[in-house]
Amino acid sequence: MKFTKDHEWVRLDGDVATIGITKHAADALGDVVFVEAPQVGKTVGKGDGFAVVESVKAASDVYAPVSGEVVEANDALSGAPETVNADPEGEGWFGKIKVSDASQLEALMDRAAYDQYLTTL
């Protein structure tokens, strides 16, 4: 699993990246009340808005940490947005992207680097 400074995580399986927000981000948001999952078939660039998560505190964009085509959305979140709080780095994933440039993953942090980054916030 790799992480961004915007608190997204990426888990690569072959050339498909599963993307969600970290536990830190879910805790900071508070109770998630709505998720707009990514649109399947949409091409996104690294850093583009990928999905939207709304909590009782705020609405936030979820940014694509890699470029590619959205191949799957976690539609279960529309009926159970609280899954993002309950299991943000597991069942609370937002979508899957077929990665067009795997080298983009090299710029992301591993767990140890992300945990270190959190201490600077």
Results as ranks from 00 to 15, higher is better:
107 A>P: 08
35 V>P: 03
42 K>T: 14
21 I>V: 14
27 D>K: 14
119 T>N: 12
108 L>K: 04
101 D>S: 09
74 N>R: 04
14 G>A: 08
39 Q>G: 09
108 L>H: 00
5 K>R: 15
17 A>D: 03
105 L>M: 07
100 S>T: 14
75 D>F: 06
96 K>E: 01
104 Q>A: 11
81 P>W: 10
72 E>G: 05
30 G>P: 03
98 K>Y: 02
14 G>Q: 02
113 A>W: 04
114 Y>R: 09
33 V>L: 00
52 V>F: 09
39 Q>S: 14
61 D>N: 13
104 Q>G: 09
75 D>C: 01
86 A>Y: 03
25 A>Q: 02
3 F>G: 04
20 G>S: 03
63 Y>N: 06
70 V>D: 01
24 H>T: 13
44 V>A: 02
23 K>E: 15
89 E>T: 05
2 K>L: 13
2 K>E: 06
55 S>F: 09
88 P>C: 04
50 F>V: 01
17 A>I: 08
70 V>S: 00
105 L>I: 01
6 D>V: 06
17 A>E: 07
15 D>S: 13
83 T>H: 10
30 G>A: 07
67 S>M: 03
106 E>G: 06
9 W>G: 10
115 D>L: 14
16 V>Q: 12
45 G>T: 12
19 I>G: 03
19 I>V: 15
112 A>R: 15
23 K>F: 02
76 A>T: 12
69 E>A: 13
82 E>Y: 11
41 G>M: 14
58 A>Q: 13
96 K>Q: 14
